[in-house]
Design a protein around this nucleic acid. Sequence first.
DNA 1: TCCATTTGACCGTG
DNA 2: CACGGTCAAATGGA
Length: 287
Amino acid sequence: MNPCGTGRCRSDDRELFRVGDELRQGRQAATDLLGLMRQQEYLSAAANATSSDPALGLAMKIVDSFSNSLSMLGCQDPAAMGGGSSESNNKRSSSSSGGRKRNKPRKADSWTEVTSALIDDGHAWRKYGQKPILNAKHPRNYFRCTSKPDCQALKRVQKMDDNDDDDRPMYKIIHTGLHTCLKPLNPSNVFGDMDSSIYLNFEISEQRNNKEPSDSLEILATLSPEFTVREVSKDNQTGSSSTPLSENAETDTSPSENAQCCFDDFDYLIGSLEFNEYALSGAALRF
DNA sequence: TCCATTTGACCGTG
DNA sequence: CACGGTCAAATGGA
């Protein structure tokens, strides 16, 4: 049985969370390293017109290894779970016998995450129940996704025990059912765990469609959650008519050093992921 | 008045 | 039969 998945192992959850946290940190570090190496290779490739660093392959393997380990712990995103869409998730449309509709089978496809923070995942959740759980200090809360009326996604949130020696409480969140209300621009729909990651939503401006040289490309990006940055085309430093993607953006200024640094990485990600400019538009990346 | 939350009851599963 | 998941009426807030 998967120790971090749908099985019951509350006494181990805290330990598993720590393991998962370590793995996430490792994956993040490996990803950072990979980004640096790719940037180095990118720069040298521009000079030498050759680019094949075997160390890159190793770094990618390390990242994959961390990701796989997280998967084995059941801490990955739902898409990676193979997302069975069995109708067992839908209990509300069945049996019309009598007055009340009945519970769904307990064996719905589900995936579990343990987090120290309840993060807004971009969906609208409505609480529909709360139950005290045997041998648990805290009750379990039941939420249904209301982003769309027919969305079948459910989640059960329970504050975990044994948090007294720690400042931050931890929550076990069991997701059940699949969203039918996908929001493509929401990074949480693309990536499952959001801990300590930076999300970048971006758009390619219309200029790209004019087949102009790449140095006239204008990119709008929102770095989640704090600020919005804008890379202005190099031959049009002022008077850009574009608007930031985020309404609550804190800044809307010409690129700071940080922003430029981010865009250096970003430019590199474009190449490394082999997206074309059209596929990129409206997508989201985490790094 | 509308909508979200609370809460007790119902009922399927093991 | 105990437990857990869901329903739906009651309640409260905007």
